[in-house]
Amino acid sequence: MNNSEFAVRLTDVKKRYLLGKVEVDAIKGITLQIPIKKFNVIIGPSGSGKTTLLNLLGCIDIPSSGCVEVCGQDIARMTDEQASDFRAENIGFIFQNFNLIPVLSAYENVEYPLLLMKKPAKERRELTLKMLNDVGLSSHKHHRPNELSGGQRQRVAIARALVKGPKLVLADEPTANLDSKTGQSIIDLMFEMQAERHTTFIFSSHDHQIMKHAEKVFEIQDGLLMEEKER
């Protein structure tokens, strides 16, 4: 397969953290390729290294050894500013704790990435309103995060991640803090969005239930890749 058909390529990636004086190997040597335009799931129990892996893919961390290429770029070679700009342009994050900016309304939270990209006001407005509509929150656009339910917050977060049309969307256990019904609706929404836009999604979870939507599944355990399944 051609390089460009992979959103991400990992070559013998290791990540070691220093916890006080103890060294923790969060990722112990993973080699994998994640294809573009698919709904990919990384599955593994708590502490297996999912978040660490997604952080590397999201260019907010660098490997201790090995090579991480995201959209063809070696992330270890980017300066902090380059990495910031790269993220602003190419990567959408969806967090377990929603991580909305509390002082901004739903509308403003969704608009924020467009501000970072210095998009003109008119375009920002159009994209933001459309995105809010797509996640079904048009009527809540002036609400602050603390005036929204967990599910609504995560919808805002999804809108925020997708509004700029990123190459890669990373969702780290986005349903872990939601009840199962709401969680399911969030998963459905993401799947719908991915199907519409053909964005590369990388979704992490410790819940095997999730896998029914997945086109590709990577199972990790203890910082090692155990299994890779195509569906």
């Binding site: 700009d85 970072l116 990209m117």
Partner: peptide, 14 residues
């Protein structure tokens, strides 16, 4: 702190 982490992840420079 978490807010700072978030907006940095979204692409705001230092």
């Amino acid at each position: 702190v978490d807010e700072i982490g978030t907006i940095r992840a979204l692409g705001l420079r230092r």
